[in-house]
Design a protein around this nucleic acid. Structure first.
Lengths: 358, 358
DNA sequence: ATCCTCCGTGTAATCGATTCCACGAGGAGG
DNA sequence: CCTCCTCGTGGAATCGATTACACGGAGGAT
């Protein structure tokens, strides 16, 4: 492959001049510029990004470590991240952790070895050593979706608290009283938060969330299926299962179908994360939708801000409830205003974008 | 960040010796080895992959350009590619073309600029200049899923011909005679092949595939919806719609639902590409399943073979029909043996792995 | 006419690794 | 005791770019 030296020789100039032309440096004569450009054209020259990175100590590359590529939520996130990054002149290298801390660590390590300019992470666990080290060492970093408490890194995420309240109001309105949840791993923030939000919302209606109604999942379909089977085996099974992500909801559907039961007649189902397929499942699944695209874009902007020396703020965007038929009759409508036993919570429409600086 | 020089200083040795220890070169004394290792540990040193790549002219990185990350088929492919690559000591950088030739070109260019060791492509069109140039210039390359005729590059793909025959037999057996297809872009091999296979299979049953029953899609949900609406507006709408990929099938479901019609009572549906969600759609969708994981792994092996100077062979694996309920009654069973008007085609069970060298 | 500036260009150092070659010490063989 | 290997090590070139610095010539000011 042609190098800058070849171009210099072809143009009858020095490599310095060639470099200057290529980088739009002002002090180059028009003549030199045209000769260089002609040589570049003639040789089909393309600058070696590896050499350039070594010299400038910047790669114009962002690393993105996501928890699971097979999860449509992350896939959509990855797409918007790449899109925004491209618009800002950066490339993205994706590492898929498959919800495994060891794989996450592997990818963080290789990304750091490649000297990426910044790291976007949705941590699978409470913080792998390599990642914490990178954060402390000053590698520009932003958490997206999930985060690690106590680490001084901006967080871009969505807050599902309101939407979960709306969901519980909806379920309560349909007459459901025994509500269960398939939780995500306790090591993740989203794993804990969604349970907390659910419990809080239930409490507002005077409902309890007993231990037997909290199933431990791992954000994968298999665990959703196992947990749901456990629920169905209970002496008093729940009337509703709320899956903390879309894949566990899929697993729940598997379990219900395997028993020959029906949703929502025999058991109702709702999910955190909305995906296109939920429109066409049997029945269409009521879900909490995150503004995924906006999340990805905001995360990139925050990270690039950090990289380029600007502050880089945390962002929290609201999620919203999308009612379908999987929780019982009363088709697709707006969530009902709560008529709770003792709750204060006013029926609040999805609030506008809220930002909070970290 | 600590460099090899810092390690050398810390260990009281030269950079040459440090490098030798790090690369497992034999002629290093045990004493030097332990001192280097201690220094590495003390400084938290990690070799700079950029510098190493510049010197060795190898990045141990594969580029993967896929047509659409939001398509679960490609997402699964990407996952298996990364997995196999990792097992062989390579990293993967994914570029998402979103079915757009210009984006595909962008990614091919940046990947080449980064001096990846090899390129895995599922071309969105008939061959962008940059890609053809790379192929001619001798960049190790392998086509996966789709390919470009006339370019001397191994192809790893699956052959759906048999499965399409099985599908048509199934449909014919259920009494359907007016069958339509939502095709992919004619610029892609999979776009053309699936239509051809379908037409051929229909011919074996004495059925015709009129122009009005061939809708032009682009492998995205939106086009599936539009084409299906067109079919439904026909004076004599088809009894069956066969979508050439899973996203267009999703779009078809959208269209059918928007009209208040039902599958399969009003119109039957089948799809190329099987995805997990098809089990739970309303109704479960009959689909042709590709051995996606095996495809990805085979592609990586072929590419790494090329990179490391071995031949690198083409691979073709059979797809198979998965019958569900979207084409009419007679639940999930094996595809029936054809009782065609004049077809020779024997009821062939999915054949074992077939390989053909390019 | 002389001096100073500024402009365009080239030389060479540099980034962090790998690796060829040279060199000194020590052991074996004559 | 001398010679010749072998082994471990270090010096320095190298990969392909960027960029500080030096330099020569043209043009303007005096």
């Amino acid at each position: 492959m042609a190098s800058i030296k070849d171009v210099a020789a072809e143009a009858g100039l020095s490599v310095a001049t060639v470099s200057r032309v290529l980088n739009g440096h002002p002090s180059v004569s028009a003549d030199a510029r045209t000769r260089v450009l002609a040589a570049v054209e003639a040789l089909g020259y393309r600058p070696n990004a590896v050499a350039r990175s070594l010299r400038t100590d910047t790669t114009r590359t962002l690393g993105l470590v996501i928890s699971d590529v097979l999860n449509p939520y992350f896939t959509e996130l990855a797409r918007s991240v790449e899109e925004e990054a491209r618009a800002l002149g950066y490339s993205v290298i994706i590492g898929n952790a498959d919800e495994r801390p060891d794989l996450q660590d592997h990818h963080v390590t290789t990304l750091l070895d490649r000297r990426i300019d910044g790291l976007l992470v949705s941590p699978t666990d409470g913080g792998s050593p390599r990642m914490l080290e990178a954060a402390r060492a000053g590698t520009p970093m932003v958490f997206v979706d999930r985060w690690i408490p106590g680490v001084d890194v901006p967080v871009v995420r969505s807050d599902g608290r309101e939407a979960v309240r709306d969901l519980v109001a909806h379920l309560y309105g349909l007459g459901h009283r025994r509500l269960a949840i398939i939780a995500g791993p306790a090591a993740t923030t989203t794993g804990r938060e969604r349970v907390d939000a659910f419990r809080e919302a239930l409490a507002a209606y005077g409902l309890d969330l007993p231990g037997a109604y909290i199933g431990q999942g791992d954000f994968q379909a298999g665990s959703g299926r196992r947990v749901t089977e456990g629920f169905l085996d209970l002496p008093e099974p729940p009337e509703v299962v709320f899956a903390a992500d879309n894949l566990m909801a899929l697993g729940a559907l598997d379990a219900v179908r395997a028993r020959g039961l029906r949703v929502p007649e025999d058991i109702a189902l709702a999910a955190f994360d909305d995906v296109r397929w939920f429109v066409h499942t049997d029945p269409p699944v009521t879900a909490i939708a995150q503004p995924t695209g906006e999340l990805g874009r905001a995360a990139v902007r925050a990270l690039v801000d950090r990289i380029e020396g600007r502050p880089g703020e945390s962002v929290t965007l609201p999620a919203r409830l999308v009612v379908r038929r999987s929780c019982g009759e009363r088709g697709p409508t707006r969530p009902p205003s709560p008529s709770p036993t003792r709750s204060p919570s006013p029926a609040q429409s999805p609030s506008p974008v809220r930002r909070s600086t970290s």
